[in-house]
Amino acid sequence: MKQLRSILLSVVMLPLAGIVAIPFYYILVNTLKTQPEISASPLGLPSGLDFSNYTEVFKALPIWQSFLNTLYVGVVSIALMLLIGSMAAYGMLIGQGRLTKFIGVICLIAFLVPGQTTLIPLYRMLSGMYLVDTLEGLIVLYLAGSIFCYFLIIGYMRTIPMELFESARIDGASAFRIYRSIVLPLIRPILVTVGVFQAMWVWNDFITPNVFINSPDKQTLVLQVYSAVGQFSTDWPAFMTLSVIVLAPLVVFFIVAQRHIVSGLVTGSVKG
C-alpha cells in the first residue's frame, strides 16, 4: 500500500516537473539549432551538436565585460552589506536601551518603505553625485540591503551566549577586537546564508540597472540580456544562447548553495 502510493506519486509528479521544466528545455535545446530549425519544430531535438551559436554570441556581445561588472558590483556590495549589517547587530547587542530602540524603529521603517517610493529622489541624488550610469552608483543603492542583513544577523546573534563576549572583554579585548576575532567567526554560518541570499538578489536584479545604467559597457548580465532582445529580435537562437550563458552560472550556484538558499529563504521570511 505504502509502496503503491509512492509509485503513484512518482508517476504523477515526475511528468508534472517535466512540464514545469519545459521553458528551460526549450531555451537549452534551441541553442544548438538554426533559425529555420526552430521555426520548423520549436521543441524538437537539434539535428546535431552545433555550438556555433555560442561562439557567435561571445563574438557579438561583450559578455565577459558584463560578467565582470556584475561580479564587481555583487562582491563589493555584499561585502559591505554584511559588514554594515553585522556591525550594527553587534552594536545593538552591546548597546543600551535608547539606542537599541531607535535602531529597531529605523530598521522597521526601512523595511516598510518600498524601493519604488524612494526611487525618484535617489535618482536625483545619484545624478547630483555623478553616480548615475556607474557601477559604484549601483553599489551605493544595493547598500540598502544592509538593513535586511542586520535583521537576519541579529536574530542569529541572540542565540550566541553573551558570556563569550564578556569573557573576552574581561581579558582586555577592545570592542573592535572582539568583533573581529570572536563575533565574525561565530556568526559565519548566518553570514554565508545571508550572503548567498543577497547575492541572488544583486545578481538577478533588473530594476536598478535598468533605471540607473545607460552605457553598454556598464551593463550587468541581466540588463545585457534585456537589451540584446532588441538586437536579436529576429535571431532567436542567438537570444536563447545568450540566456543559457547567463543562466549557466546560476545553475552551478544553485547546486553548490542550495542548502543555504533554502535556509536563507526560511530565516529571511520568518524575520521579514
Binding site: 549589517g85 556591525m87 550594527a88 539606542l99 538593513i147 570592542a175
Partner: peptide, 17 residues
C-alpha cells in the same frame, strides 16, 4: 562603542531611506 558600530547602518538609513 555601540554608536560607532551602528553608525554605518544609521548612515545607510538616513541617506537611502
Amino acid at each position: 562603542e555601540s554608536y560607532l558600530f551602528t553608525l554605518p547602518v544609521i548612515v545607510v538609513f538616513v541617506v537611502l531611506f
